[in-house]
């Protein structure tokens, strides 16, 4: 028996919707955000509509049951049920969306806020657009010395940073669970691999309180490390972060490419 096209289209949509939930929430165990799922489903619906309607005959076949339901006198019972159900569903949707909840409102937090062009660090105004790691050049010029600096950076990291950012730099340190937002996972390709070293320097030295307005200052428990570490120690920690994770800082010339 051939499945009517309207039912085919509905089954595809329902299948895709639950497919996303089953794959993400249960198989991969990484829940799919409902806001994203809504966006996904909007365009999946558009795609299904396109495939089912580009041809005039197919369109007629798709619309036939709806047309019959509205116009055919023998379908009066179904019509009444559908016409009652649709407003009820819409009403429930409105109720569900507007009902106050005890959940804290969703925040659109900017994880990578834009850095200012200059910042006051260690009492001096630093140009973040041109600032470079003073130890980076050792990577090509004196690899042994570079390895030593990385080692020193690792020691600073273990003493100060790993409690939150983790000994594997994956943001899962012993204190991580108690923090919101959780500490950054440096292994993630979307974090330090996308940034220049000067950005890290700015974030580490000025910490949560130094975040600009768009990222809501203070909504981060990152300490202001310029109060506790020296400038050199911070640059060495940055060397270690990239070295351990295997990422390279964002740069613009092939000369800086090390991988």
């Amino acid at each position: 028996m051939r499945i009517p096209r309207l039912l085919q289209a509905t089954l595809v949509l329902v299948g895709v919707y639950f497919g996303f939930i089953v794959v993400f929430d249960y198989i991969l165990e990484a829940v799919i955000p409902r806001s994203l799922l809504t966006m996904y489903m909007f365009f999946v619906t558009a795609g299904v509509f396109m495939v089912f309607t580009y041809d005039e005959d197919q369109m007629r076949e798709l619309a036939a049951p709806i047309k019959a339901m509205v116009e055919d006198p023998s379908k009066r019972g179904v019509r009444n049920v559908v016409f009652l159900l649709i407003p009820l569903l819409v009403g429930y949707g409105v109720y569900d969306k507007t009902m106050p909840s005890f959940d804290a409102p969703v925040e659109l937090r900017t994880i990578h806020p834009a850095p200012p062009s200059t910042a006051k660090i260690y009492g001096e105004r630093v140009n973040l657009l041109t600032l470079e790691n003073p130890f980076r050049h050792y990577e090509t010029e004196d690899p042994e010395q570079f390895a030593e600096y990385v080692e020193e950076g690792a020691a600073v990291y273990i003493e100060n940073c790993q409690y939150c950012h983790g000994d594997k730099l994956d943001g899962k340190g012993p204190y991580a669970e108690g923090l919101n937002p959780t500490p950054l996972n440096f292994q993630d390709i979307g974090t330090i691999a996308q940034l220049q070293e000067s950005y890290l320097y700015w974030r580490i030295t000025t910490g949560g309180p130094g975040l600009p307005k768009e990222a809501a200052p203070w909504i981060s428990s990152m300490p202001v490390w310029q109060n506790f570490l020296t400038e050199e120690e911070i640059w060495k920690v940055i060397l270690f972060l990239y070295d351990y994770t295997g990422h390279a800082p964002r740069s613009w010339g092939a000369a800086n490419a090390s991988h």
């Binding site: 990578h112 834009a114 850095p115």
Partner: peptide, 13 residues
């Protein structure tokens, strides 16, 4: 040209 403009553009606000 500018990390600041680039991040404002695609990673920031």
């Amino acid at each position: 040209y500018s990390q600041q403009m680039g991040i404002t553009l695609m990673g920031g606000i």
